[in-house]
């Protein structure tokens, strides 16, 4: 199936920060988790994908189209949730419905109201009286109610309690029941994406350092914990990066089954995305 989003050689330079040669390719029917520390470049990348900032270089195609020719057509079919930016707090969901009816050709009032009911969001209450979990569900509801094919969400789970987070992950899985749909979701809380994401993209200091199928990361990658004596015997090619701690060495390896047969090390753990990210960022080769 064709790719829903492709980013080639995207670069953008600011005084203190730089996006360096970002490449992304998102197929249809999947959830892609976009992971990185705060300030790693997640939001800037998302803004570039949405044509909100002028990039220095780069070729961005959404649904195979270019923003230069088809900006409106593209945005008709994207649902967006931004961090810290939405309609003003004086508005109610019912107001938003009145506005969106004119802004999206495909705005589905019935669907919107149905979502509001499903998520128990009061339609006549001002946004400023919403809790953060309710607000996020409202933002996602608004993003879903014009039948988008691609959802782009910046930090949708940050600051939410576990129940609200799991409800949101459920919405994601619901959305990709249609195999033409995809989700690109950024988060600095990796555990949220560990369950539902199909692919993981890591960004660090404005560069994508890893882009991999999630199952591969969790099922094949491993964290080796060993002593210095054991570490010396391990060939450089057999690990990605290592980190020297006070009492042990931590190695990130790409294939824990192979490693097991080659070396006699006691501790080879299944990694979490957090651990992979940590060793990638803090470790050395």
């Amino acid at each position: 199936m064709s790719e829903i989003l492709s980013v080639k050689n995207l670069s953008k330079k600011y005084d203190l920060f730089e996006l360096k040669n970002i490449n992304l390719s998102i197929p249809r029917g999947v959830i892609v988790g976009f992971i990185g520390e705060n300030g790693a470049g997640k939001t800037t990348t998302i803004k570039s994908i949405l044509n909100m900032i002028n990039v220095d270089t780069g070729d961005i195609k959404v649904f195979g189209n270019d923003y230069k020719e088809k900006e409106k057509d593209i945005k008709e079919k994207i649902g967006v949730v931004l961090d810290n930016s939405f309609f003003s707090e004086q508005l109610t969901p019912s107001d938003i419905n009145k506005i969106m009816k004119f802004l999206y050709k495909e705005w589905d009032e019935k669907l919107f109201i149905q979502y509001l009911n499903d998520f128990k969001l009061p339609i006549e209450k001002m946004i400023k009286e919403y809790s953060s979990g309710m607000l996020m569900k409202l933002k996602i509801t608004v993003a879903l109610s014009h039948h988008p094919e691609l959802l782009i969400l910046d930090e949708p789970t940050s600051g939410l309690d576990p129940i609200a987070r799991s409800e949101i992950l459920d919405i994601f899985l619901d959305f990709i029941q249609n195999e033409n749909h995809s989700i690109f979701v950024s988060s600095h809380i990796t555990s949220d994406l560990e369950t539902v994401a199909d692919y993981i993209v890591f960004i660090n200091k404005g560069e994508i350092i890893l882009s991999e199928e999630k199952d591969k990361l969790l099922d094949d990658y491993g964290i080796v914990r060993c002593t210095e004596d054991e570490f010396i015997k391990i060939e450089k090619d057999d690990y990605i990066k290592y980190r020297k701690n006070k009492f042990d060495y931590e190695l990130l390896i790409a294939d824990r089954n192979n490693f097991k047969t080659k070396y006699d090390v006691k501790v080879i753990d299944k990694p979490t995305l957090d651990e992979i990210m940590l060793i990638y960022i803090k470790g050395v080769k």
Partner: peptide, 13 residues
């Protein structure tokens, strides 16, 4: 105040 100018740019406008 609500940074909605940013959000509005994500709409088909």
């Amino acid at each position: 105040k609500s940074k909605s100018d940013r959000y509005i740019l994500t709409l088909p406008l």
